[in-house]
């Protein structure tokens, strides 16, 4: 090879003539390696997300025709219990009497029910504290009492006492007709 074909003729055996070229190659190779590793890792990680059959369980229809006033029906939605409670006129009146401003998680009874279907309360039956299932008809407020850490909910499923931070969650649902609701 002719001497003038290299830019820097002073570099000898074992020396790098243009270090920036090598740095570029190392950076480019490592960068591509990181991109490749992430691409390969994603299917492994994503496979642990809910599978299609689990996602397909995202809505469930519940027949509520047999529920009498003062009774609760339990349904299952996404592996969690749903409380469907048919309230008496007295209970609805009690729920509306509460001073909303004094609540930990202020919500009116109207915000937690569907218009013209105020007698039905539909909530996810999972305590917002640490995930236990509250017991119906117990506690000081006529609603639900969580046996794990003593959280107490009223007849609108609102947190009134105990460690839970929020009201029982109202899931997305709709009345298909007077006898059937679709949750999810």
């Amino acid at each position: 090879m002719a001497k003038d074909s290299t830019k820097n003729t002073s570099c000898g055996d074992g020396e790098v003539c243009d270090p920036s070229k090598r740095d570029f190659m190392v950076l480019a190779a490592n960068g591509l390696g990181v991109v490749g590793a992430c691409t390969v890792a994603w299917p492994l990680i994503d496979s642990m997300n809910p599978s299609q059959d689990v996602l397909a369980q995202s809505s469930v229809e519940v027949d509520i025709s047999s529920v009498q006033p003062g009774q609760q029906k339990k349904a299952m939605w996404r592996g969690k219990p749903i409380f469907v409670y048919r309230r008496t006129p007295q209970q609805i009146a009690d729920a509306n009497k509460v001073d909303v401003a004094s609540l930990r998680d202020p919500q009116t009874d109207k915000e937690r029910t569907k218009p013209n279907h105020e007698e039905w309360l539909v909530v996810v039956g999972v305590c917002t504290h640490l995930g236990c299932i509250p017991i119906v008809g117990e506690g000081e407020f006529g609603g639900w009492f969580c046996p794990c850490h003593g959280s107490q909910y009223d007849i609108a499923g609102r947190i009134r006492k105990g460690p839970a931070p929020q009201n029982l969650v109202v899931p997305p649902y709709e009345f298909i007709n007077d006898k059937t609701i679709r949750i999810g």
């Binding site: 994603w42 299917p43 492994l44 994503d46 496979s47 997300n49 599978s51 299609q52 059959d53 689990v54």
Partner: peptide, 13 residues
């Protein structure tokens, strides 16, 4: 078959 049809990227794994 659940792995092949339902699990995300199950077919690939």
């Amino acid at each position: 078959e659940h792995i092949m049809r339902d699990v995300n990227y199950g077919w690939l794994l």
